[in-house]
Structure formats: structure tokens, C-alpha cells
């Protein structure tokens, strides 16, 4: 039974093309451990350096967004853990990096607005937006202010997908996915 249940979970993930999945509390240590394994695996599959770099970049930005913005948090004496789910799948020649986390109600509208505006931008306007974000103000802690999302959009071969789901408890679940490589 136990083996069957675990095997079914694995088979279900594999049938969706998932090569890697993590669901749980995320920390910077988990990020670098898993990120290292991801890079080694992609290198062993002879993925192009540029593809490996882009997948890793999107992976890092998505994980750090979960760490910063997940509204499911656990305080463990000094360190705050953030809950999220992250998966990487293969779809023919492309890698798809997905992540999801609960977001607080006031975050939903600004997040949707940011992502919608990014979807309408071409490479040149994404570059301009990136540079503008790099230079505006001296915000450092939690630095981003959207620069992470711009980075994800720049690395993505197709417009970044995103969605919101109203959860049973009234909160909102946010999902984002970026596709890298392939024929686009």
C-alpha cells in the first residue's frame, strides 16, 4: 500500500512531464541545494548552457518570490519559513518552471497588473523596464519591487503564464509558469 501510494504520486508527476517537484516550506538553503541538483541534472542531459542558466535563473527568482511573498508562513525562532510549491517539467524541447503560493488579498490586484503589463512587452521594452528597476531608488531589502518578475519574463521564451484561484478559506492561491527553450 505504502509503496503503491508513493509510486502513484511519482507516476502522476511523471505523466505530467514533471522532472522535479517540491512542495513545502522554502528556505535559501533548500533553494541552493535543489538548484545545484537541477543544474547538474540538466548538464548531464546535455542541455545548452544558456538554457541551464535561464532555467536556473527563473527557478531562483520564483523560489525567492515564494520566500518573500508567500502568505503561508511559519515563524521558527528567528527564521520565517514560507510555504510554496515548485515544479519543473519537460514539454518536448522546452523546460517549464512552475510555482505557486498563497498571496494576501491586497497583493492580488497589483500582482495581476504587473504580470499583465509584462505579457504585453517585447524584448526591448522588457530590457528598458529591467534597467529602470535596476536604477530606481535604493531599495535593497527584499529588493525586487518587481525586478524578479521582469527577469522571469526576460528569460521566458513565451509570455509568462499566471493565474489566481480563490481557495475554500477565502484566500487566494497564485500560480506562475515560465517556458524556456523549445520552438516557442
Amino acid at each position: 500500500m505504502l509503496a503503491q501510494r508513493t509510486y502513484d504520486l511519482r507516476a502522476d508527476l511523471q505523466s505530467r512531464g514533471v522532472i522535479f517537484a517540491y512542495s513545502g516550506y522554502v528556505t535559501d538553503d533548500i533553494l541552493s541545494g535543489v538548484g545545484g541538483a537541477l543544474r547538474r541534472e540538466m548538464a548531464s542531459q546535455d542541455a545548452a548552457r544558456r538554457t541551464i542558466r535561464s532555467v536556473f535563473t527563473v527557478f531562483v527568482e520564483q523560489m525567492q518570490n515564494v520566500i518573500r511573498y508567500s502568505d503561508e508562513r511559519l515563524d521558527t525562532g528567528g527564521e520565517t519559513l514560507s510555504y510554496g510549491i515548485l515544479a519543473i517539467s519537460r514539454e518536448s524541447d522546452a523546460y517549464v518552471v512552475h510555482s505557486g503560493n498563497v498571496v494576501s488579498a491586497p497583493e492580488v490586484a497589483p500582482l495581476r497588473e504587473k504580470l499583465e503589463s509584462l505579457r504585453g512587452m517585447d524584448a526591448a521594452s522588457l530590457k528598458a523596464a529591467y534597467k529602470m528597476r535596476l536604477r530606481d531608488g535604493e531599495t535593497t531589502a527584499g529588493g525586487g519591487a518587481g525586478i524578479g518578475l521582469i527577469e522571469i519574463a526576460r528569460r521566458s521564451t513565451t509570455p509568462v503564464g499566471f493565474d489566481f484561484l480563490k481557495m475554500e478559506d477565502g484566500r487566494t492561491f497564485f500560480a506562475i509558469e515560465a517556458r524556456i527553450g523549445g520552438d516557442a
Binding site: 536556473f56 535563473t57 525567492q64 536604477r135 529588493g143 525586478i147 524578479g148 521582469i150 527577469e151
Partner: peptide
Amino acid sequence: SYFNSSSAKALMMLLE
């Protein structure tokens, strides 16, 4: 060999 978007901001501050 690699830096994330928040490090990019810090790097830009250094260059400025």
C-alpha cells in the same frame, strides 16, 4: 558567473 535580480540591483548601486 551568476547573480539574481536583487544582486543586480546592488551591483548597479556599486557601479553608479
